[in-house]
Write a protein that binds this DNA or RNA. Structure first.
Length: 226
DNA sequence: AACCAGGACGTGA
DNA sequence: TCACGTCATGGT
């Protein structure tokens, strides 16, 4: 129903017909060949950190600001002063801590020199938790790591699939086990998470969550009474 | 005007 | 391990 979501959005790309509106027109539906450059790869990582507990439309402003100052290049971000970065990423909030997170990650990223980071190495970085690590791995490095966010939990706990109190890894295992396809796995993981977010934004923001959810038509028998 | 957004960290029990 | 407070801005 919603169609391809075109995640992860990029502020500059050569994709054709970005259909989704937004301040950066960066979505690229049905094109899973991104990131194409190291700068785009780094931009996705920066966006994943900036979007923690923040609306992505606010993150877009910060990303545009960063790009305007040419700070989406790793080396330039490493050389920038913290005060400068703080001011530039103010629109997306938490600028004091996120500036430090970006500095730490930029240092890590530059030392990768093209290699794919391990999940554990990412989690050891201050400011990178399980969700941000998986978002970076899935969308920036095309690794098969399903992303679990608050929306995912909201939708699937509504139908009694799992409880919100389950651990992050348990939620992730459920999706990995349910999506055991070798074919197009990365695309499916990327698309499915984006679709969950889109769906949850429509039916799981206002409380009580999910009252108008059209999936009830298919899953009603699984709703657990409380 | 209160609520929340594509979380993570630090603390004390 | 786990529950809870904190971090900041901007849109609805």
């Amino acid at each position: 129903m919603y169609g391809s979501q075109g995640w992860w959005p990029l502020i500059e790309h050569n994709g054709t017909n970005p259909t989704k509106s937004g301040s950066i027109q960066g979505y690229h539906p049905n094109d899973y060949s991104f990131p194409k450059t190291k700068k785009q790869q780094f931009e996705i990582c920066v966006g994943a950190i900036l979007t923690q507990n923040t609306n992505f439309s606010s993150v877009e402003k910060s990303l545009i600001n960063l790009n305007k100052h040419n700070l989406l290049k790793v080396d330039n971000l490493l050389n920038a002063s913290e005060e400068n970065i703080k001011q530039i990423i103010t629109p997306s909030g938490y600028q004091n801590q996120k500036t430090k997170y970006l500095k730490v990650f930029a240092s890590f990223f530059s030392q990768l020199s093209g290699r794919i980071p391990s999940r554990k190495d990412l989690l050891d970085l201050k400011g990178i938790g399980p969700e941000t690590a998986d978002a970076i791995l899935l969308y920036a490095f095309a690794q098969p790591e399903f992303v679990i966010d608050v929306y995912t939990k909201r939708v699937f706990q509504h139908f009694g699939i799992l409880e919100n109190t389950e651990k992050y890894e348990d939620w992730k295992n459920f999706f990995h086990e349910s999506l055991q396809t070798e074919k197009q796995k990365i695309q499916i993981y990327q698309e499915y998470h984006a679709l969950i977010v889109e769906h949850a934004k429509r039916y799981y923001v206002k409380k009580p969550h999910g009252t108008q959810c059209p999936l009830k038509k298919f899953l009603q028998t699984q709703i657990q009474s409380k």
